[in-house]
Design a protein around this nucleic acid. Structure first.
Lengths: 257, 257
DNA sequence: CGCGCAATTGACTGCCCTCAAAAAGCGTGG
DNA sequence: CCACGCTTTTTGAGGGCAGTCAATTGCGCG
């Protein structure tokens, strides 16, 4: 089931040096620092946070960052790339619980049980910052700003999941998919990208699984949206032509139960 | 749509005195303290937590503890009773995001935005402890045990919601309902009650809404389970006759996609 | 070119929703 | 006590949305 990585990085001496520089890359120079854990920290605090960051790891497409049962050691801040997290139930069926992008935090579900409760897989070649949780806890003691922001992030995750529950429990296929696209759109906007043009990092199957639909349904929805001039689609390239209507659909302005 | 409270507490002088005593009730004497926020605290720390608890409020059945848009001031620990939380989407449709019982914490979704993002309604006459969040944050600075446990609780909430996502996205009606019942069962066990005999605190409609099903489907499922000798049901009184089979059904041992 | 994988499209099925009506509780008032 | 209205629940009949199954297309790659 697991996709194999397309390419392994070729390690040369020169590349090692570059890598070392990347490892020393700091939160301050990271383009995601307004979205990520260090948000709102002053320079001194950001440096202290920097010092506990374990390392910046590259995760190749299709490989697993952590899986169910792994001991919980680190949180991971996504520096670059996209991930999916999915739960595996005892019968073996899977449910994707989220798609995460740069600036978002992975692994918070593991805090309670000291073991990860889902798998996290890179959807493309990605980079994460390892944040050793025990050391982060030490920082909390003297950095109330950091602690407060961490609580905000966890709370946001709770809210995000509640929105997915609303989506899964109350929406029709069309509305689900529109909500999915507008959600991606607004997250790309927050990162400075286009609201209407972006690449889907996940397959139709993954979208379907996430939304509680089949791959065929996703495909049909895309065709219909295309026919209705809501969007253009070419493989994974999405171009939303009528974002207002898409948003209206997502909030159920058209068809609701 | 909102149910009106059935009865307002009659305040007399004598009752006031009793109330005052209840207000002084401490975490140490609360039957939920092994499940609730003070879990694992030593006596001194528990007293410090006690001191910041605002008041113990009674919430009559059907009345609202907080609603969408209310400013976030307190977390609430349920001392007694049951609640439901539900989201209201722009089109007006609702999704119940959880049923909470004694020992559980309400309001964590509001931390990020400083406003509540769902409504919380008492399903029966209940009592909560108000926990002013800013004061709780002050405690965190000197009580690492409390902080760690708070993080566990938030993380548990994330995990719980991921399980609901799995349920809503991947399960058939029968499996959903079996999972719902076994979930209640295990939570009652954790509170020292029977695993097989309990009262549903919520209506069929609320169950259906939570599970992404209609009231009719819930009713039919109950009838079928009854016919198959899985359970007895009398109004809201549930008696699970074959818990192992119910659990097997919940994990999809019978029918999965 | 042919193979494999992902996506699309079509035909059909079935689970659950919708609509409708009857039954069962429950409180109220005659 | 029973009649009455109201709400909640149960049960039935039928329909629709999305799933299932299957065949086709398109694309990348060896």
């Amino acid at each position: 089931m697991q996709q194999l990585a397309r390419q392994q990085p070729v390690i040369t001496h020169a590349a090692d040096i570059i890598n070392v520089q990347q490892l020393r890359a700091s939160c301050a120079t990271c383009s995601m620092h307004q979205l990520c854990l260090p948000m709102g920290l002053n320079e001194a605090d950001m440096q202290r946070l920097d010092q506990i960051i374990g390392r910046r790891r590259k995760i190749t497409r299709g490989s697993i960052l952590y899986r169910v049962g792994d001991p919980f050691i680190n949180l991971y801040a996504i520096r670059l790339g996209h991930f999916k997290t999915y739960q595996v139930d005892p019968a073996g069926s899977r449910q994707i619980t989220g798609f995460q992008m740069a600036g978002e935090l992975l692994g918070m579900d593991a805090i309670s049980g000291e073991r990860h409760l889902c798998d996290a897989m890179a959807l493309e070649d990605s980079e994460v910052c390892e944040i050793p949780f025990p050391r982060l806890e030490e920082l909390f003691i003297n950095m109330p700003t950091l602690l407060r922001h961490f609580h905000r992030i966890m709370s946001q995750e709770i809210t995000r999941e509640q929105n997915v529950m609303l989506l899964l429990g109350n929406m029709r296929a069309e509305q689900k998919f529109a909500a999915f696209l507008t959600n991606l759109s607004s997250r790309y906007v927050a990162r400075g990208y286009s609201a209407t043009s972006f690449q889907l990092r996940m397959s139709r199957e993954e979208i379907g699984n996430y939304l509680g639909l089949t791959i065929e349904s996703i495909s049909r929805l895309l065709s219909r949206f295309k026919k209705e001039n809501l969007l253009q689609v070419n493989h994974r390239e999405i171009n939303i032509l009528d974002l207002p209507r898409m948003k209206a659909m997502a909030v159920g302005a058209d068809n609701c139960r």
